[in-house]
Design a protein around this nucleic acid. Structure first.
Lengths: 195, 195
DNA sequence: GTCTATAACGTGATAGAC
DNA sequence: GTCTATCACGTTATAGAC
């Protein structure tokens, strides 16, 4: 979110510990996504990566920082906005469903951990930078801000249903029926006039 | 959520500890709603209530259980479904905005703490029992389940925007503009046919 | 001088003895 | 009801290995 992930502090040298950091990142990402922030301990991550627990903190500043650098970086919806604006509703819903069915659990993990101040900030920034702001800028007509923000609320609502409170009906319902209905609802939220 | 809040186990005796339990509940509710589950310690609650920390655990089984009995019980949207179905969209949005502007932070606190299994179950049950199921039963026409669940997703989305990721635009925008747009969107999600 | 391992510290929730 | 012990956790201090 703030700094590039894998750049060593001093680019001149190869940074011998890069491999260890990568292993820790990998273990952390898997654990955090599967078990959540709380249920995952530093010692668990360290054991998976085959390193000493203290190393995890030494390389990443804290457990929270490690979470943000791994899971937080996975929460991206940049490509939803690519493409024609008049089909963004269906495209957004399809992206959410595809992501969920391919096992992307980052969003749920972030929301469930958003009691932590820095993780909350990460969540808020992701939505603002990647969704609200570019969408608002792209919208023609009056009330662009209102429409963009309501679109986001609606968009996030489906993600929360699937990966935060685990709505089993929506998790297993045919994708096309959800895309048709919810996609259209999203699309109408973006329309300047409601007929 | 499960049991009435202030009924003593044996109605014959006055149950001297009832007052203490009530004080603990009051302190817990305030702290949890204001600072969240994690940032609130058992010692903080006990200090506010003027009791010994160990007593909190003795009366309520755990911090998580205490949270569910206080904040969890505040998450109720039963009255949203009361009234004519053809105006439920606007009514739901108005209820959300009113609740938020009156300082009801229960939903945000629950979502942010839903990493804990029991709190997650509380959240899921609240939505299912109070929204999805009664709504689905009340809906005429085909696809009742799909429409009810998508309505819930949309409904929850606005709550999440206001009290989880703190969308400052929606928090301060004129209520009527949100009610008009989002209320209509909710209403259309319930319609059997999308025109 | 940079990376890693060992051993502790502080804190928080919780359980059991009194 | 209260006191105290226990256990797990994130984190840090310190010192050894390259």
């Amino acid at each position: 979110m703030t700094a590039p992930p894998t750049v060593p502090p001093e680019p001149g040298r190869p940074d011998r510990s890069a491999a260890v950091k990568a292993r820790i990142r990998g273990s952390a990402r898997e654990r955090f996504n599967r078990d959540g922030f709380e249920a995952t301990g530093i010692r668990d991550i360290a054991a998976d990566a085959g390193v000493n627990p203290a190393l995890v903190i030494r390389h990443f500043r804290s457990k929270e920082h490690l979470f943000i650098e791994t899971v937080g970086a996975d929460a991206s919806w940049g490509d939803v906005l690519d493409g024609p604006l008049d089909q963004i509703g269906a495209r957004a819903v399809r992206a959410i469903l595809d992501g969920h069915r391919h096992g992307h659990r980052a969003f749920g993990a972030i929301v469930r951990a958003s009691g932590r101040p820095d993780i909350h900030a990460t969540l808020k920034n992701s939505i603002t930078r990647q969704l609200s702001e570019p969408l608002e800028a792209a919208l023609p007509g009056p009330d662009a801000a209102l429409r963009a923000h309501l679109f986001c609320a609606q968009f996030i609502g489906l993600m929360v249903a699937l990966s935060v409170y685990d709505d089993e009906y929506l998790q297993t319902a045919p994708a096309e029926s959800i895309i048709a209905r919810y996609g259209e609802a999203l699309q109408r939220t973006l329309a300047p006039q409601h007929p």
